[in-house]
Design a protein around this nucleic acid. Structure first.
Lengths: 237, 237
DNA sequence: CGGGCACTTGATCGCCATCAAGCACTGTGG
DNA sequence: CCACAGTGCTTGATGGCGATCAAGTGCCCG
C-alpha cells in the first residue's frame, strides 16, 4: 500500500483514511495472522483516535468495536460496528478519519503497516480481495445513507436489526432467530441518527407489533422477520 | 472483474453493486477511452435503473448525473452526484443498486463489462488505482453519514456547498469563488435528507449571514468561506 | 438490601415537514 | 410587445416526529 503512487491526480483533494473491515478468505487470514501480534482490549478502550497517524492495520479476533466521528460541539455519529474477522486501519492516507473503540472485552491482531503492505505485495490475490472488500463497504455505506436520510425511527431500528442478524447468520452459516446487542442504546442511537430515548421507544413499538421479543437487555429474538423486512423497506405500515 | 473469485467467503451475503466514480490518471483514461463508445444524454434521461443487470461501465465526459435509491413508498435518497471524469457501474455484482440519471445535457463513454475487465487485467496498475478510488468513495460516504445523521439543515447545506466547490477546484486546479448548481432544489433536498422548502429557507439563511451570494438560481458565490467551514464543522453558531 | 447505572416511560418543545400561497423566470401564441 | 400559462423557487402558516427534559423502573453487583 505504501508504494501506491502518491497523489496523481488526487493528491490535493481531501483524502481521508478508510476502513476496510470485511472478511478475507481463510488461507489468507492464516498466513496474515502469522505476521501479527495479539492485543487484548477492555470495554471502552480506544484502539486509535481521529487524527492519529496510521501506523498499524488491525484484525478483530473476538468481541466488537465501534467506529465514530465527532462534530465540533460533541455530536457523535457512529459510522460502523466491527465484529470478529473484520479489518480496520487499511488506509491510503496517513491519519485515521475516525475513532475506534472496543464495545466489550475484545481481542485483536495488529500488523505494522509495512508488514501488511509487504504481505499484500507478496499475495497478488489479496489486492483484488481488498478491492472487493471496499466494494462491500461502499454498498453498506449507501444503504446507511438511505437509512439516515429518509427512513423513520422505527424503520431505522428494523433495518438495523435485520443487518445485525444477517451479519450473524453469515458468520454462523445458518439462519438464526436471535442475536446479541453488544452496544448500548446510546451507541445504537448514534449509529441510527436518533437519541437513546427514541431507540427505547421504537424498541417498545417493535415489541408491541410482535415483530421482536427482548430476551434480555442485550439479546433480541426475531418473531416476524417478514414484518420487519416490510418495515425496513419503507412500506407505509 | 468478471474473473474475481465469485463467492468465497461472501457469496451468500447481500452483495450490492457499487459505483466507483473518481478520476483515473490521464494515460489510463486515454487508453481506456479508445475502447469505448460515446453516448449523449438529455436532462432527466436515465442511464440505468436500480435492479437492471450490470452490462456496461460508464465514464462521464461532460455534464452531470445523479445517483439515487427509492424506498417502497417513493421516498428518494440521492447518494451522489457525478461530474466529468467520474466512473460509474464498476461493480462486483450483477445488478445495479441504484438509478443513474442525467441532470443536464451530458456526454458519456461506455464500455462493455468484458472490455473493461480485460483492460483492467492488462493494466496491473489500474486495479490498484480502482482500490484507491473506492477508498475515496468510502471516505466521502462516511462524511455523508455524519451529515445525514447529525448535522442541522443549515450545516448540511454549508457542507454541501463546500464539497461542491472543493470538487470544482480540483478540476480547475485553482481556488474558485463561484460554482454551479446543476441540480434542482428538490435534488439538493433529496441528497441532504431535507425538503425543497427547507433547502430554500437555509439558502436564504446563508445569504442573510453573508456567507454566500446567489448570482442566479443556479450559481453561487462564496463570500465567507471560513464562516461556511465553521458552520459545516458544527460549531454552535 | 441498597446504591448506581442503564434503560424505559412520560411531558413538553422545537426543528423541519407539510400544506398553501405568492413570486419570478421562460416560453408560446396572439 | 404583451397576455398568460407553466414550472420551479420562495415565503408563510401550521403540524408532527423525534429531541429534550424529567421521572420512574429494573438490573447488576456490592
Amino acid at each position: 500500500m505504501t508504494e501506491l503512487p502518491k497523489g496523481h491526480p488526487c493528491e490535493d483533494c481531501p483524502v481521508r483514511p478508510i476502513t476496510i473491515c470485511r472478511r478475507l478468505d481463510a488461507v489468507t487470514l492464516a498466513n496474515l495472522r502469522a505476521l501479527g501480534t495479539m492485543q487484548r482490549l477492555e470495554p471502552g478502550q480506544p484502539i486509535f483516535h481521529e487524527g492519529d497517524p496510521v501506523r498499524r492495520v488491525f484484525m478483530l479476533a473476538s468481541g466488537s468495536l465501534k467506529i465514530y466521528t465527532l462534530l465540533a460541539d460533541g455530536r457523535r455519529q457512529i459510522t460502523g460496528f466491527m465484529f470478529p474477522g473484520d479489518f480496520l486501519g487499511i488506509s491510503i492516507d496517513d491519519e485515521y478519519a475516525f475513532t475506534a473503540e472496543a464495545l466489550v472485552r475484545s481481542e485483536l491482531w495488529w500488523f505494522t503497516r509495512d508488514a501488511f503492505d509487504r504481505f499484500v505485495e507478496d499475495n497478488p490475490k489479496v489486492e483484488r480481495e481488498l478491492y472487493r472488500l471496499a466494494a462491500h463497504e461502499l454498498a453498506a455505506a449507501q444503504s446507511q445513507m438511505v437509512l439516515l436520510g429518509r427512513k423513520t425511527a422505527a424503520e431505522r431500528l428494523a433495518s438495523f436489526f435485520l443487518s445485525l442478524i444477517a451479519r450473524q447468520e453469515l458468520v454462523v452459516g445458518e439462519k438464526q432467530a436471535e442475536f446479541d446487542l453488544p452496544m448500548s442504546r446510546l451507541d445504537i442511537a448514534d449509529y441510527l441518527g436518533l437519541t437513546k430515548e427514541t431507540v427505547s421507544r421504537m424498541l417498545a413499538e417493535l415489541r408491541n407489533r410482535k415483530f421482536i421479543r427482548l430476551m434480555s437487555q442485550d439479546r433480541v429474538q426475531i418473531i416476524d422477520r417478514a414484518g420487519l423486512q416490510e418495515m425496513a423497506a419503507g412500506f407505509g405500515e
